[in-house]
Amino acid sequence: MQELLIQILINGLVSGSAIALVALGFSLVYHTTRIFHITFAALYASGGYLFWYLSVGQQFDLASSLFIATLFPALLSLFLWLIIYKPLTNSGAEHNELMVASVGIMMIIIYLISLIMGDDPKLPSSALGKTLPARYLQLIVNIIVITVFLLITSTTRFGLRLRAFRDNPRLLGRLGINNFYLTGILFLLSGGIAGLSAGLSTNDLGISPFTGVHVFINAFIAVVAGGSGRISGAVAGGLFLGILQSAVVFLAGSEWILSLSFAVLIILMLVKPDGLTGLARREA
């Protein structure tokens, strides 16, 4: 009994920290540019597949596979911002139009992947170690990356600019701080986090074309549950959701995870309309 509880808790921490990391990566772009950046889900998938291809297909070692799987989505994210979002914003595209464009890019990337790699699920190689070490590795890296980010945003000048950017992007421009580079860095970091997180998770569980979309939905719910606007809120929401999910997986099976997440979202709205950290704005 006690072992089971510990198992649930550990699994919860692993998936919770993974959700939190993805939520962090998404919120870097979402809370500053306000673009509903669903392409993030496809960047995640690209990182996961690249990792799988390198580590299982090409027998690369774990570290270099992870490194390349982080680097590629980061560059892709930056590239997409430069050739899609930026010109669209410059020609005055509205919120909905950016959203639809993002959906379009997501479809292109996901189906390019499934065209090249096939749409069957890719399983992790057992040669890279048993699943348990893979899980611990994921947990440790997640926690390190999240902590570093929380420290950066709360203590450094870069973090201060980031928060100011989120609160009032135009003001920052007037203060002479360059939005262009800051936004570029944000897209780069966000894509990198997507890839890193996907690589770690593929190492543990494998990947299929729409895994990224599922992860994305969970991350968005975590952002809402945590109370939008603050990175620490997204992290709290992710941990909460992850632990709850791993409990439900033991009780009912993994096919109900997404339905559960939505039930959580709805119940949270009933009892705590402002989110866990109490900053979300609600419709009057």
Binding site: L160, R163, A164, D167, N168, L171, L279
Partner: peptide
């Protein structure tokens, strides 16, 4: 207001 949106002070 919880956050003053004018300027960077919170």
């Amino acid at each position: 207001f919880a956050i003053s949106r004018k300027g960077m002070n919170m």
